[in-house]
Design a protein around this nucleic acid. Structure first.
Lengths: 128, 128
DNA sequence: CAGGATCCCATGTGATACTG
DNA sequence: CAGTATCACATGGGATCCTG
């Protein structure tokens, strides 16, 4: 049956979206644009992501060589993530998308979106 | 239970990725950059997408006002899809991503990926 | 602190058959 | 031609608990 690891079609758009798609990858890459961040920082930054998902996504990004993972053997443990060259090359694209997103949000009047009363606090305003 | 249609966090990156994420949306928008296309054209262009998925994604894009859907009441029926202003504003971003994707593919030596022998012909080289 | 393991559900996606 | 309808399945994502 010759299973193909990922039928990443020859279309670059498709190829790219398979790497930065998913629910969090864009935001994680984006939040690393300012420089190195620790696991806990990302966790607070992404707001609402579970440890499992964060780890999973970070590993995928690492495999794709978009970020690096540097472990410091200390007590308490410290792990720092940073963009690679390849990853950093992606930032301008994400920035354009972000600008587009901002414009759309304004246009659609999305600002004070009412959540269910549950988690009013989890805001994700990465952009300052 | 007040189901929220989409908890589109206030982060523009997240917001945007919810709209152009998914497996096909990027390619569909990209394939419309040259101009209007009919349902069947898209179907052949996206190569491998099922009618159900194509319709579903097109409807979502339409709801998000990224594309328009124009129905001609003729025999045989004809439906044309085109980018809206909002959708077109997204093209430069997708183009950047595409360029990045191309570079990555070359860097990773992905070119002659062997598909199952079934559909050797369905290439998705949207970029000329 | 930075995760790993496990279970579970929601959604996304696919195959096939059928229709105005 | 341009879809719909239905069913089934894979993946993504979430909750909770545990560990070096």
């Amino acid at each position: 049956m010759t299973k193909i690891k990922a039928p990443q079609s020859k279309c670059p758009v498709d190829y790219a979206f398979q790497r930065i798609g998913g629910k969090y990858k864009g935001r994680i890459l984006w939040s690393l644009k300012d420089g190195v961040k620790r696991y806990g920082q990302l966790r607070r930054f992404i707001s609402g992501i579970t440890p499992k998902m964060l780890t999973q996504v970070l590993r995928e990004l690492e495999e794709d060589e978009l970020i690096t993972r540097k472990v410091y053997l200390e007590i308490p443990p410290r792990v720092e993530y940073a963009l690679t060259e390849n990853g950093y090359k992606l930032i301008p694209s994400i920035e354009m998308i972000s600008l587009w997103g901002q414009a759309q949000m304004q246009q659609h009047g999305i600002q004070g979106m009412e959540l269910a009363e549950e988690e009013q606090g989890i805001i994700t305003d990465i952009d300052e």
